[in-house]
Write a protein that binds this DNA or RNA. Structure first.
Lengths: 161, 161
DNA sequence: AGTTGGTGGTTCATATTCGAACAACCCATA
DNA sequence: TATGGGTTGTTCGAATATGAACCACCAACT
């Protein structure tokens, strides 16, 4: 609690740049996906995770963690995708509580079709602009943040008990 | 259009890490701000930009660009902040179309009060985990992306005419 | 078997987001 | 000063995102 130091100029610069870049990226990605195939970025991430999963299927809970969205948010989106025939729901055979979201062939096609444009945006605005060093650096930076956030509970750093 | 190459493994790793990290960060920031002072991250960014501006005031349009949000989105949020007494609206003296959003003293106090916790999160999960090199790298990476996105219009890379 | 604590998904109310359409205003030029 | 194009901010409707409340089910222990 005593360490309420603000950010230094360079730290603030990095943080501000990150914030702007992330908002702008989201904006451009959304725009492109919508124009190309009527998908949302959220839709795309869900379809992509399912596509990469064994059997093209995942438990709702696992999927929610993978795309980093709330349970209710995922329920909503999967419902939407189901209505469009891109995903199906099955009850989990090993656990009656569970629901499996399964990518349909139509969903796989839609994903394939929308991928080139999406990748083009990600490349044009980010990936292709980075040197190999910067790419490695970004991976390391983001991985550090992820492990920090997925292990720590929340709130300010606590003392050992 | 011909270059529809997917991402290499390391590129995809970097992108996936970025996506997860950004979603998680947003989640944690939101949670902390809400708990500390009942502010949204969107609120915080608006108040912060106003606080840094000369005269603590900005045209709606400039503010919208600074926080990277749609015009209608900003109208909504400023309305909300005005209702809570943290921001005031004034018509711009030099341009009758314009509206100035002005940070009130109450808004400044609220910003100050919520800042330590917010910074603590940003530090704990990101900034404090980075080496000086990584911090510089992040600034450079994000700056590249920003300039790419704010100059280029959109869509796939166009040929010279 | 009966109980108890915990997990998985959905439902619900609320708060935001965005883009399109709109009205008011600025300015350069005829 | 009239006109036309461009800018500014708001309004409106539709789509989401979230947390809290809730029910169904699992697993361990008595």
């Amino acid at each position: 609690m005593a360490d309420t130091r603000w950010l230094t100029e360079s730290e603030l610069g990095a943080w501000a740049a990150y914030l702007s870049a992330s908002h702008l990226l989201e904006r451009h990605i959304e725009e492109r996906l919508k124009a190309d195939s009527g998908l949302t970025h959220a839709h795309y991430e869900i379809l992509a995770k399912l596509s990469a999963a064994p059997g093209r299927r995942l438990r709702m809970n696992d999927l929610a963690r993978k795309v980093v969205v709330s349970k209710s948010g995922l329920t909503y989106q999967v419902g939407r995708l189901e209505k469009r025939g891109l995903v199906e729901r099955t009850t989990c055979p090993s656990d009656d509580r569970g629901v499996l979201a399964v990518l349909t062939d139509e969903g796989a096609r839609r994903l394939e079709r929308s991928t080139p444009g999406h990748v083009a945006v990600v490349r044009a605005f980010l990936i292709d602009r980075l040197t190999p060093d910067e790419l490695r650096s970004m991976t390391r930076i983001m991985s550090k943040a992820i492990t920090a956030m997925t292990s720590a509970p929340a709130g300010p750093p606590l003392r050992a008990p």
